[in-house]
């Protein structure tokens, strides 16, 4: 919808009026065929009713609308217009082309945003400034954020649950696959009892939390049997099936570690790969368990079936 004629100082040429709103063209467009120009909004509304030019009634379609020639836009841009906020007290006049620049800084523009200088520093529309209170603005901001935090943390909780469920399922599948492989090699079929033991193993494994090793140098490569017995006890207490615990503890000495770790030299050359491990903390002990099902990506040189244990002097969080 165009600009009211009353806002212009001089009489405006008929060519610069929109035939629909009968006011001075605002963001004009014209039809390719007949070159009749209208305000963008006016003609879009008309075309929702009829697909003819409102002046000559020739058939048109919306894609026939093209920008008006520069000369028309220039003529419009030069017209002197009064400010939108004239009734609010602004007496400024300006060329139509700089009306928007003026409105952004017009002191009488009720929707102009200013920064509060009383303390909160928020952007506030001028019309709301007299009722503005920093305290209540900040208060509602805090409430809004609190609500947001609450929402996000409940989302986070849900997502964590999803991740842990999926992790559990992945482990289960991996173990079943491994077991299938082993049992088909040994030419036997997977029995129900075997599947149950897999389930038990996975349940235990997913109850463990991931270990953070701050000092790999603290590992004990040749633990004595007393130390091994203590760690085995802790494994069983954490829910590890006894048979598996026995296997894992027997793999807690460098002699039974995978080849990539079994000697000081190989350990040194593989040190850079330590961070790729998925280590699980053995509760209450400075010890970790590395299960084959979680560490298949490490390859045979760095892994032993069904897994192995590393006991530390210190450095496990």
């Amino acid at each position: 919808m165009g600009y009211e004629l009353g806002r212009f100082e001089e009489a405006v040429d008929e060519e610069l009026l929109c035939a629909i709103c009968r006011m001075v063209l605002e963001s004009p467009v014209q039809f390719r065929q007949c070159e009749h120009a209208f305000c963008d909004l006016c003609i879009s509304e008309w075309l929702r009713h009829k697909n003819v030019c409102p002046i000559d009634r020739n058939l048109v379609i919306p894609t026939d609308l093209i920008p008006t020639p520069r000369i028309l836009r220039n003529l419009l841009g030069k017209l002197s217009i009064s400010c939108n906020n004239r009734e609010l007290g602004c007496i400024e006049r300006m060329p139509l082309e700089s009306l928007h620049t003026h409105l952004d800084m017009c002191n009488f523009n009720p929707t102009r945003q200013v920064q509060c200088e009383d303390g909160c520093g928020c952007l506030i529309e001028v019309r709301h400034l007299s009722k503005h209170s920093c305290l209540s603005t900040l208060g509602s901001m805090v409430r809004e954020r609190d609500e947001n935090i609450l929402k996000l943390s409940s989302q986070l909780k849900e997502l964590k649950q999803v991740v842990s469920d999926q992790h559990h399922e992945i482990l289960l599948v991996k173990e079943i696959v491994r077991n299938l492989r082993i049992s088909s090699i040994s030419a036997g079929l997977t029995t129900e009892a075997e599947t149950d033991s897999v389930r038990e193993r996975v349940k235990w494994l997913s109850s463990l939390s991931r270990a953070r090793i701050s000092r790999w140098g603290g590992m004990i490569s040749t633990p004595d049997s007393v130390l091994q017995a203590m760690v085995k006890r802790a494994l069983i207490d954490s829910g590890c099936p006894v048979e598996l615990a026995t296997q894992l503890i027997s793999n807690s000495h460098e002699r039974r570690w995978p080849p990539g770790l079994s000697m000081l030299e190989t350990r040194q050359s593989n040190r850079h790969r330590y961070e790729e491990f998925v280590p699980k903390r053995i509760p209450t002990k400075q010890a970790i368990v590395l299960m084959a099902c979680e560490n298949e990506h490490m390859g045979e040189a760095m892994m032993r079936d069904p897994g192995f244990v590393i006991i530390f002097a210190h450095g496990v969080d």
């Binding site: 008309w46 009829k50 030019c53």
Partner: peptide
Amino acid sequence: DQWAAAMT
């Protein structure tokens, strides 16, 4: 149906 917005 022959109405056009430019009419007055």
